[in-house]
Design a binder for these strands. Structure first.
Lengths: 136, 136
DNA sequence: TCCTTAGTAATAAAAATTATCCATAAGGAA
DNA sequence: TTCCTTATGGATAATTTTTATTACTAAGGA
């Protein structure tokens, strides 16, 4: 259970009711698109203006609270920043699964960056396919 | 130099003037967004309707001629499909650099997929940072 | 060359995103 | 706790992006 107010303050953002509602929904779903946040927030809680959601998603992304996950053929989803991981994206149902990397499955992208004298800041590895559930 | 007419026919698409113009621009820039294709096509050649560009990008992507490259904080870019590679994306100038993988820099994503019983179809590895040129 | 079918242009429509502006709430100071 | 300042939210308009429509046109096989 994340302390949203703390998370926001750590990133120099006021802990408003609306922001915490948005974060709560994002955490609940893990990865979610803007329109879906709007629908969920409207359904469960008091309704927030769509413009408010847009503004705060952009702001929280800039401030490092959220990360955008751009996806082929879909609208971007957003997640709360956490330890590095890759995404398994199901092209059937759209589900995004986080996968932490361990030593056994490490991805040596730093070597790649180095050989191109590219100053690496952020990696995003997306694997597209069919999830366990949709295969059956 | 790609034979665009052949490429299109191999994917069951008619080799129209407009499609070849679009492919020519994409190949010239390597990775390019839709609006930029429109501007370039309009500037150099006869002007194509923006709607035509949209329709053909979608179609050629579906048919496997192009791949979408969704990018954090930007519009998607498109490239002609080629051997698997990763992208170095410069957050300063927006340039996308292709990087082929060799044995030395292989990325063992298949192992990851396997441990999640995920049926892997397509991998997309994007490294964000600052390119050689923008560092100086 | 003709014919059939698919493709294009132009425009309208729809969807997504951003800007505006005034009312309001957050959070520090007293 | 109350007050004050300033950032924020809501509603809506405006803009931008993307898709649909429809009549005309070109591609490619017969």
């Amino acid at each position: 259970m994340i302390d949203y107010a703390l998370l926001l303050k750590e990133h120099q953002l006021k802990a408003t009711f609306q922001r915490m509602q948005i974060l709560e929904v994002i955490e609940k779903y893990g990865h979610i698109a803007i329109e879906a946040i709007y629908e969920e927030v409207s359904r469960i809680h008091s309704s927030l203006s769509l413009a408010t959601i847009y503004k705060n998603i952009v702001l929280m992304t800039q401030k490092g609270v959220l990360t955008e996950i751009p996806i082929i053929g879909e609208k971007s989803k957003y997640e709360i920043i956490k330890d590095e991981h890759i995404h398994l994206i199901c092209t059937e149902c759209g589900t995004v699964i986080d996968k932490m990397l361990d030593d056994d499955t490490a991805i040596d992208t730093e070597k790649v960056a180095k050989t191109s004298s590219f100053s690496l800041e952020h990696r995003q590895v997306n694997l597209y396919g069919t999830c366990d559930h949709c295969q059956s």
